[in-house]
Amino acid sequence: MSKFLKGNYEVKGGKPEDGKEKGKEQDKDFSTIFENSAMEKLGGSIAFVMKSNKFVWDEDEDTK
């Protein structure tokens, strides 16, 4: 899936199971840190999403 869709929205039907339970347990500390109210400030400079190998979306251009 990640080859086609990456970013900040969910696919209908949810994420497939990836069987990374062990990894999740090991990384719990970081997730706990993210529960802190400062979490929002830790984000990047600007939002990121990518869909269907498309780098530019221009409705005006696409519909011509």
Binding site: S2, G7, N8, D18, K20, G23, K24, Q26, D27, F30, S31, F34, M39, E40, K41, L42, G43, G44, S45, I46, A47, F48, V49
Partner: peptide
């Protein structure tokens, strides 16, 4: 800190959207 998992990267994606979309 360890290399981040997919779920943790997703948390940063969400945090960044929250931080930048309204002001954008």
């Amino acid at each position: 800190m360890k290399i981040l998992s997919e779920d943790e990267l997703k948390l940063i994606t969400d945090a960044t959207l929250k931080k930048t979309a309204g002001i954008g």
